[in-house]
């Protein structure tokens, strides 16, 4: 009987267990037994959570200025477990961005971006930018005061970009200012374009990883005769399952203890006293406030560009100067700057 069923399937799906094992069973380096090397899998898992909860929320969300806020109010107050699904979506977004940043730091400080992995670093940078943008558009969809004014401020920042700024702003807002066409744009970006792009990038990201193999590390206290790899399946797979469950528990607890509320509805006529973006934009927000318009924007763009091509700059430095560990020190400065500016923006009122 069992054989008959198995035969029925294998006739139609000509793939054997051995082949699946072959496909998935990449030997995993031992260092991945340490949890902080699994930070890459965390955002991927959260990304799946976001897709699931995002699709659920889209069943009720109505992307138009007249209905957006009301539909979110309905989700939060009327729909069964709506507050929970919405809180999960919000908290998973927060955790995802945090995980992406931590993952990138880990890659950076362990030098995992170096030759031959420069391209994957750049794919990762694209994923970072996509993550930040999807966070921004998602927040704008709520259409409460701060999300509306956050988007307006972002559009004004766009304006100060030389040459292309106005063009991009018009493209983003579907006009010179926030109007009835803006919200659908944000929605399509948030719920279709960016997720699709990110899935594509993730496939490339993981594909390159698989082709190149994970960077291997040896720790000094490890005996040399210890096996250097372990199995992806089931050993590492179990680790990922564990991480997934811990994340789900964490999300559930966060959603119940700190459920997402709903601020006042967007009012284009009343500017709030304090406009602040979500925390992950605090850095750039503080940066923009420190320097005058165009310089701040251009310098931010320059920093992003440098981050993008960092593997090559780093390679050049290591090749042509004697400061082979320069990246670590630059990294430390960068992290201090990142944390410092974020904290600064978090504690000041304006």
């Amino acid at each position: 009987m069992v054989t008959a069923v198995r035969n029925w399937f294998s006739e139609r799906l000509p793939i054997s267990g051995v082949q699946i094992a072959e496909l998935t069973n990449e030997p995993v380096p031992n260092h991945l037994k340490r949890w902080w090397f699994c930070l890459g899998g965390t955002p991927a898992y959260l990304f799946v959570v976001q897709i699931v909860t995002g699709i659920l929320l889209a069943f009720y969300y109505q992307p138009a200025p007249s209905t957006a806020y009301e539909s979110i109010r309905t989700i939060t107050h009327d729909v069964s477990y709506g507050w929970y699904i919405r809180s999960i979506h919000k908290w998973a977004a927060t955790l995802m961005i945090a995980a992406v940043i931590l993952h990138q730091m880990r890659i950076y400080f362990t030098g995992a971006y170096r030759k031959p992995r420069e391209l994957n670093w750049m794919v990762g940078m694209c994923l970072l930018l996509c993550t930040l943008t999807i966070g921004f558009t998602g927040y704008s969809l709520v259409f409460e005061q701060l999300s509306y004014w956050g988007a307006t401020v972002a559009a004004n920042i766009c304006d100060t970009v030389p040459f292309a700024g106005v063009f991009f702003k018009r493209l983003l807002l579907a006009g010179d200012s926030y109007n009835s066409q803006t919200l659908p744009r944000f929605f399509i970006l948030h719920a279709a374009v960016l997720p699709a792009v990110m899935i594509g990038l993730l496939v490339v990201h993981v594909g390159i990883l698989r082709l190149q193999g994970i960077t291997e590390f040896r720790f000094e206290n490890e005996p040399d005769d210890k096996p250097q790899t372990f199995n992806f399946f089931p050993d590492h797979f179990y680790t990922e399952l564990t991480i997934g469950l811990i994340l789900m528990i964490l999300l559930s607890v966060l959603a119940t203890v700190l459920p997402v509320d709903l601020g006042p509805k967007a009012d284009p006529l009343t500017t709030p006293e304090v406009i602040k973006p979500e925390w992950w934009f605090y850095v750039s927000f503080r940066w923009l406030k420190l320097f005058s318009g165009t310089f701040a924007v251009v310098s931010s763009g320059f920093i992003v560009f440098v981050m993008f091509v960092w593997p090559f700059i780093d390679g050049w430095i290591r090749k042509h100067t004697r400061y082979t560990e320069a990246s670590v020190w630059i990294g430390i400065v960068g992290v201090f700057l990142l944390v410092g500016l974020t904290v600064w923006e978090a504690i000041v009122e304006h």
């Binding site: 659920l56 009327d78 729909v79 069964s80 477990y81 709506g82």
Partner: peptide, 11 residues
């Protein structure tokens, strides 16, 4: 199951 309840009409 929660997802199922979420999607079921609430009124």
């Amino acid at each position: 199951w929660l997802i199922g309840v979420f999607l079921y009409p609430f009124r």
